[in-house]
Amino acid sequence: MAIKQGGFSRKSKTSDEIPSSSLADIAFLLLIFFMVTTVFRTDSERDIIWPQAEATEKIDEKKKNILNIWVERNGSIFMNDQPYTIEQVSEVVGPLYAQSDRRLVISIRGDREVPYMTMDQLQKELVSAGVVRVVFATELEQRMTRQRR
């Protein structure tokens, strides 16, 4: 009953290597997954010309605690892609501010030509909503561009 050629010594036809060709597919899938799911910001940019300031500094707060209020050149106000009148601002911001545990930072993104009247009204609305921390969003002004102006 001796097995001819010995059953164990027969060469297996399956490869003894780990199949590595599909690794590339896995990696590419991951790559595409991250590229698709990355969400950069919740509200889209409005068409404004940023004011410039040399003292511009980064806001030290988590992104979810920052609310952008856009003020366009014609004075229209947008929050989270929704248009609002200036009187509605405190009604909208008030509850959000309470929800955030009083940590909410308002980033006022105004066009550089907006009359200050609008900005003052906006600040008064924010004060009546109880907001304390406000940032006037600006672009960093370089010394070089400043000298050229």
Binding site: A53, A55, T56, E57, K58, I59, K63, I66, N68, S107, I108, Q123, L126, V127, V131, V132, R133, V134, V135, F136, A137, T138, L140
Partner: peptide, 8 residues
């Protein structure tokens, strides 16, 4: 986000 921070 960056800008000029003030406290109201």
């Amino acid at each position: 986000d960056k800008g000029l921070a003030i406290v109201l």
